[in-house]
């Protein structure tokens, strides 16, 4: 009891910052509305890019459009939520360049925890809604046979997908200590990773399967859980049962992320101020 109270007390500063950030975004109503609408449109246009392909063909990588909707929805919902809570780690190069990261060292809390809780982008909720709608449409129209198995896979896939994408943001942040101006390089696996996650992994070449199937485990965030839910056979190297291993991918993503973060933090020598 006392232990829980102590933990709650320790988390209080984080909650205070997050609540203030959330309030500040809603303070300017018109601006917040514009942000929500543009975030919604981002999701819609991304979905339209997939839909355009399906105006030409009936199946891609062994999946029909309604089945792809499930992959796209799972991936975009998980990514948008990770972006909402971790996306601002992308601002680290600005802190490094301005030397303002040093302030975070002065507080008695871990730097990563402070950075993660330093902001929350509520506008991404609109994009998450597009993902959720696509996922719902995919689930209801692609003839999923509902069973406890399918439900567990869906929840497991979503939670692990969120954690996997979050781990990618941490990994990217760790690398920023070395890249500085080359920050765009990490877009290859963060935003490129999101793009990969919405694709049917069955269309990938072998090198892509290695890179986005396993090293940056994007196939585990949406495609593999979706294949397992739909009862489809997976392609070579990515059998459907791997859908159950999504939590392992999340662990791997966080292990590489945290390792890289520690490595980067030790490399950092201060802003010289």
């Amino acid at each position: 009891m006392a232990e829980t109270a102590g933990r709650l007390e320790r988390l209080r500063p984080y909650r205070a910052v997050l609540a203030s950030r959330a309030r500040s975004q809603r303070a300017y109503r018109a601006n917040f509305a514009v942000d929500l609408v543009s975030s919604l449109l981002v999701g819609v246009v991304e979905l339209a890019e997939v839909w355009v392909l399906f105006t030409n063909v009936t199946a891609l990588g062994g999946m029909r459009f309604n089945q792809i909707l499930l992959v796209f929805g799972l991936a975009d919902l998980a990514f948008s939520l990770a972006d909402l809570s971790f996306g601002h780690l992308d601002n680290l190069p600005d802190f490094l360049r301005a030397g303002t990261l040093d302030v975070f060292y002065l507080r008695p809390q871990p730097v990563l925890a402070q950075l993660i809780t330093s902001d929350i982008s509520l506008r991404r909720l609109a994009r998450a809604a597009v993902g959720a709608a696509a996922m719902g449409a995919g689930l209801t129209t692609s003839g999923v046979t509902w069973s406890p198995h399918a439900a567990v896979l869906l929840v497991l896939g979503l939670v692990s997908g969120y954690a996997t994408f979050a781990g990618m943001f941490v990994l990217a942040a760790g690398l920023q200590f070395f890249l500085l101006d080359g920050a765009e390089m990490t877009n290859a696996f963060v935003y490129g990773g999101r793009y990969a996650a919405t694709q049917p992994a069955s269309v990938w070449t072998r090198p892509l399967k290695l890179v986005f199937g396993f090293f940056f485990p994007m196939a585990f965030t949406a495609y593999l859980p979706a294949v397992a839910i739909l009862g489809l056979p997976g392609p070579q190297w990515l059998p459907a049962w791997l859908g159950w291993c999504a939590p392992a991918a999340a662990l791997w993503s966080w292990a590489t992320g945290l390792l890289c973060w520690r490595w980067g933090l030790r490399h950092y020598q201060g802003g010289g101020g």
């Binding site: 390089m185 290859a188 490129g192 090198p207």
Partner: peptide, 14 residues
């Protein structure tokens, strides 16, 4: 690097 990665993914799907 980002261009090339996106390019390979575009190649795969297209």
């Amino acid at each position: 690097v980002a261009n090339l990665t996106f390019g390979l993914l575009k190649v795969a799907i297209l």
